[in-house]
């Protein structure tokens, strides 16, 4: 099976849904089949939420939520303690966390022994580039370092297409800068 499944953990308002969609849409641009969808609950800012991205070389038939992801991206560092973010993540899986901690510390906190763990301080990067605590775009950059699902350029094109009209050139460029910085700064261990 040539399908990759990604689960995003965030809190309402942090842009997990947007990140899941941008990744899917950038992959669509490279000829892949995609699905990107949030798990809706009673939405409120700050409440834990999940979103999913599926990327495949073949048409995607399945329509249930993802139970055994290849990659888990945790956008909010406090969720590592609050919920089991590694649920269903296989031995070959990748756990990517927005945190100032090291991969070793995250392994200890989650009990995730195999696979790969990546950490990046995406909130700090967002504060320094965008001047807002929006870690979702940097997390996309870090994700492309651990799995080259699309190139940074392909993702950037998508970000520009979605953001330029909506938030203007300056903020769009700040987002692109955040993506590149996280790509370079992510620690894998």
């Amino acid at each position: 099976m040539t399908m990759i499944e990604i689960r995003w953990h965030g809190r309402g308002g942090q842009g997990a849904k947007t990140a899941s969609q941008f990744l899917g849409e950038a992959s669509l641009g490279t000829g892949k089949y995609i699905q990107a969808f949030p798990e809706y609950g009673p939405e409120r800012a700050g409440a834990p939420m999940r979103a999913y991205t599926r990327i495949s070389d073949e048409p995607i038939y399945i329509h249930s939520s993802v139970t055994n992801p290849e990659i888990v991206v945790v956008i909010d560092p406090t969720l590592v303690e609050a919920i089991d973010v590694t649920e269903g993540l296989g031995d070959e899986g990748v756990l990517l966390v927005n945190t100032d901690k090291s991969p070793g510390e995250i392994r200890k906190a989650t009990g995730f022994k195999k696979g790969k763990v990546g950490t990046v301080d995406a909130t700090r990067i967002a504060l320094e580039t965008l001047k807002l605590p929006m870690p979702n775009m940097p997390m996309l950059g870090a994700l492309l370092k651990v799995n080259s699902l699309v190139t940074i350029d392909q993702l950037s094109e998508r970000v520009k297409a979605k953001f330029l009209k909506k938030i203007g050139e300056e903020k769009t460029n700040a987002n692109l800068e955040g993506i590149k910085r996280a790509y370079n700064e992510v620690k894998i261990g």
């Binding site: 969609q21 899917g24 849409e25 669509l28 089949y33 995609i34 699905q35 990107a36 969808f37 949030p38 809706y40 995607i60 329509h63």
Partner: peptide, 12 residues
Amino acid sequence: QDGFITSHGVEG
């Protein structure tokens, strides 16, 4: 169409 599953899922 199926609410949320189809209505809110992005596909090509």
